[in-house]
Design a protein around this nucleic acid. Sequence first.
DNA 1: ACCTGAACACCGTTCAAGT
DNA 2: ACCTGAACACCGTTCAAGT
Lengths: 248, 248
Amino acid sequence: MSMSRGNSPETERRAPLTRERVLRTAVELADEAGAASVTMRRLAEQLGVEPMSLYYHLPNKEAILDGIVDLVFREVEESAGAFDDGGGSNESGAPSETPDVDATWKASLRARILAARRVMLRHPWVPALLESRSGLGLAQARYVDTVVGTLRSGGLPYDLIHHAMHALGSRMFGFSQELGDDAGAGDASDSDAFAQMAEQVPNLAAMLAVVAHDDPDSTLGWCDDQFEFEFGLDLILDGLERQHARTA
Amino acid sequence: MSMSRGNSPETERRAPLTRERVLRTAVELADEAGAASVTMRRLAEQLGVEPMSLYYHLPNKEAILDGIVDLVFREVEESAGAFDDGGGSNESGAPSETPDVDATWKASLRARILAARRVMLRHPWVPALLESRSGLGLAQARYVDTVVGTLRSGGLPYDLIHHAMHALGSRMFGFSQELGDDAGAGDASDSDAFAQMAEQVPNLAAMLAVVAHDDPDSTLGWCDDQFEFEFGLDLILDGLERQHARTA
DNA sequence: ACCTGAACACCGTTCAAGT
DNA sequence: ACCTGAACACCGTTCAAGT
């Protein structure tokens, strides 16, 4: 309520330009028009400001891209507020039988990843952007940290956890390939091109014929992405569990 | 040897501009300087030609990117020339006990994928480019086709094969995430930033400390990518084998 | 401290023209 | 048939300047 800083009604209407506000607007822009539309000039326009003003709050476009990825991972953290931290900080590195192993590690990791997926589905441009980025941002690192913590609470040794991170790959963040675009379709979108392709790829064509048999429109784009995601995720989680059981 | 078309020594020295030659040069350019350097203007320069000449042989830049991906997959096909086709075309879709199941499907699929990986390692820009592309090219589709054929020859039903394709994801093509860049490193490249980050991500830091303990330089970038790739691949292949055995 | 204007070095691409 | 030149509508970014 203090009016010490000269807040005219005008400056109150237009929120001041801020790193935070720039990034939030960039996320909105990406959500509405795709990552390619996040351009310094269009972002500035959206903010009612000149392009060069952005450079006062962020060093360059890379920082903006890093920033919006981090913003999404903060959203992931919020969405997972209900989960416990699972951070049993076992200082000694010895893989002795810890008494307090959490038998539900697999279910809770699974739930957390599926929660992350729900956020990613709201921002389908994140996967492609994330692949192009090298280096974890802070929020993403914290997310990875909770995954490690969950696996550790299940009693898995750190080297198996390390392999698990690699085996999960981007699945850890809730996506595989086909989030944004229609993977599996492609040049063969129209059925003519596909029929012509079919004789060159008989095995693939046979598989598609069998799998799509209960879906009326035979054109592709028929995969149940959610089912496939969970299938692949469970394959990996079950495999990890088995590896752990074999050496425990 | 015929000189019917006016081949002066000059035109023989400079090979004629061709779709093929444009794409091969584009691959070389990407190999040497990264995918970002494949630009119509720089590509033309490399070919000793004006930028607009490229548009006579290819419709636009997208076609060039699709083209170089396809070129790499043709390289994958060549590298796998020693493999058999495994194309047992079992017309009836019934999953009855086929007498001619190939018990070595897992090993041969594994070998083919690792062969593809060796090609991808020569062209580290392919993964990122492939993710951004929607739709299989012909050579890539043929590659997928042989993967389907191999799984089918092992007796797996088509719907399990379909799940397998999704579960494998880009691993089918021989890469996971960390081909080009140093995944796992990042903002924490310098040890100062990492130490500061460590207290925010205790579980992650603990894992890294344990896993890196036998690697002298504690900075990241220490993962044995080949080992991790094979670990994840085997996890999936073993899981698929088990799923198949359970329903066979 | 915060924002702007003009300018630079790039992009992909169209279109009319050259040979 | 094959290649070119000029031009257009975009980029990200630097740098000196405004308030």
